[in-house]
Nucleic acid binder design. Structure first.
Lengths: 344, 344
DNA sequence: TATTTTTCTCAAAGCGCTTTAAAATTGTAG
DNA sequence: CTACAATTTTAAAGCGCTTTGAGAAAAATA
């Protein structure tokens, strides 16, 4: 059933019916309820594309997520973020259009979305320190919110967690426990989050008077194998690290595997701190979590970012705002005092 | 730039320009190339919604994924499937509209998508043994493909892996290794995949003359905690299982944790077989995987299903087709002979 | 009762495209 | 040079909605 049929059936003009349904004041209460009743009864749902064409609003938000790595993987972090944002959208009558793209640098997707009038705004995922997509989005004038940020956090809207501080505090905790050989298994450092984590890590080491050792640092896609291989390699060094700072739960699975394979016990000979995005199927636990972790809810970030974007769409001239989410440092059973405090 | 502007600029009618761009034969080659050049130069991209309204085709596919469990989680399986399907869509000029819904039984989302003309077809995720959404989709006449299937696999299109056989073979392997007390940590059995896995498991036990013990069976959302708690509880039974059949890698993480916490070694005192959806960040390994597993690529399923759906949309009267994907049984280091072969 | 104001309803244009039906142009014979 | 067909182009209608600018109807004021 479409508007024409409905208005014929009601013996009213399309104008009146449309206005009645959209709660315009120019229509009497009597007519309005009559119309609404008939619409409900007839199961009338306006054609989304027609509304869109007539109003100029797509009522759709675009998410363009890059494949997480060379293996063409869709990171569970994005999934969680999107699921959360999706809730906001449906609450406000928006749809979610998802594009998964192979190349992270390819800004043409955004050009396309804008030119095709497919979306009213987009969320920019996985920003790099100096991301070329920023300029494109600004050029085409499509409202957007960044999940994360570029190194220069000015002039656009973003929602991020405090990566720098999280890893600084985590490093500091390890230093306080007496660790001096602390490894960092980071994400790719083109990504701002990884860059900031490293910066936090280095700052804490400097503050603690510990020299930075590039042999203890790695950066790659966040997979189990990466954690396993890198941790394994580092543990077999003549002077091996006594602690690992790990950028995700998934990588930590590999680290844990390497540790136990080396005949060591996590939390005793080797300490591990992870960043935990609170993906609930992983469940890093309540009272005494498996892993000591810096925590921040991706779900919460999705909520904040989607809200922010909808507001921006309402009011396109809004001054850029940002949300920097705090992280918690939660002590679990994967950390303990450095075994050989005699050594430096 | 829109069609009108482009045609004005070219001094041609909108009809001709439209036809030139869409490769209709009624336009001379000279004009066609002139038009295409101008369009490319001017960065012309037709308004998606206008095309959609004019043609009646949304050029969009809907994916409605249920929250995986009470914790409102978006399963990484869906993410992988969708990422894969997404590739097919963009290749054929389709967009992907994602809806995440709280309630698994709520079919109103589908009614809405159909009535709003938002999509040309949908993928039905996470089907239950007797899924109410089936009737709704058939009623509204929206083309759809099921990822998985209902217990009755007739009358609709689906792509599934052979859950029954996979778990039957896995159980048989354990029986052949001498295990008699084999536990099954399954997904919720309203889901067809879980139902079929259990059926395969029971069939193998019957064939092997082993009585079915309901204390060795559990069904719940697929989380790490579930695996940890259930395996922990079972291992502390007076007569504990010597092997576990586990429905996912994530659950198996918990099982492994419980096993090592009980002071046992996986692959020696306790065997574990998992189903591995080949999420590449987990990397169950190449030569000698961590877990013995039944394997099936979700990525591949996403590819098959999306192709099937696009074909169905092209040709709506196509006879229902289905793809039953084989699974591989890959031996890893988590299985071994039953430690006490004397016991039955 | 006539006039103004307010309330309610409507016809028609427009959003940007496709597509039908018809017209203009070109080509081929007769 | 006309007649007819084939080729190329176009005007206009239509997709299903919103919204503008008016017109009727009802209510209020004179």
């Amino acid at each position: 059933m479409n508007l024409k049929q409905l208005s014929n059936q009601l013996q009213l003009s399309q104008t009146t019916v449309s206005r009645a349904l959209n709660d315009y004041p120019e229509v009497s209460e009597a007519t309005r309820s009559r119309v609404k009743l008939a619409a409900a009864k007839g199961g009338y749902r306006p054609d989304m594309r027609a509304i869109s064409l007539a109003t100029g609003k797509a009522k759709t938000i675009g998410h363009v997520v890059p494949m997480a790595n060379k293996d063409d993987v869709f990171s569970p972090i994005f999934a969680e973020f999107i699921a959360s944002a999706s809730q906001t959208y449906s609450q406000y009558g928006y749809e979610l259009m998802l594009t998964v793209e192979k190349s992270r640098d390819d800004a043409s997707t955004y050009r396309g979305l804008a030119a095709k009038r497919a979306v009213d705004g987009v969320i920019l995922h996985s920003p790099q320190t100096d991301d070329p997509r920023l300029a494109v989005l600004q050029e085409v004038g499509l409202p957007f919110v960044v999940h994360g940020r570029m190194l220069n956090g000015e002039g656009y809207h973003w929602v991020d967690m405090d990566n720098h501080n999280a890893f600084k505090l985590a490093t500091k905790l390890l230093l306080d426990l007496g660790h001096r050989r602390i490894a960092l298994l980071n994400g790719r450092e083109e990504m701002t989050f990884a860059w900031l984590r490293r910066a936090g890590y280095e700052e804490a080491l400097n503050d603690g008077g510990v020299a930075i050792n590039s042999e203890f640092m790695a950066a790659d896609d966040l997979t189990e194998r990466y954690g396993y291989q890198k941790a394994g390699a580092m543990l077999s060094m003549k002077v091996a690290p006594t602690a690992f700072l790990v950028s995700s739960y998934i990588v930590a699975l590999g680290v844990r595997r390497a540790i136990s394979q080396a005949g060591l016990v996590m939390g005793e000979q080797v300490s591990v701190i992870i960043h935990d995005d609170e993906l609930s199927y992983f469940d890093n636990g309540g009272v005494k979590p498996q892993f000591t972790s810096t925590r921040s809810s991706v779900r919460q970030a999705g909520y904040e970012a989607s809200k922010m974007l909808l507001e921006l769409i309402e009011n396109p001239d809004k001054e850029p705002t940002s949300v920097l989410m705090d992280t918690q440092l939660v002590i679990g059973s994967s950390t303990g005092p450095c075994p050989s405090l005699s050594e430096s």
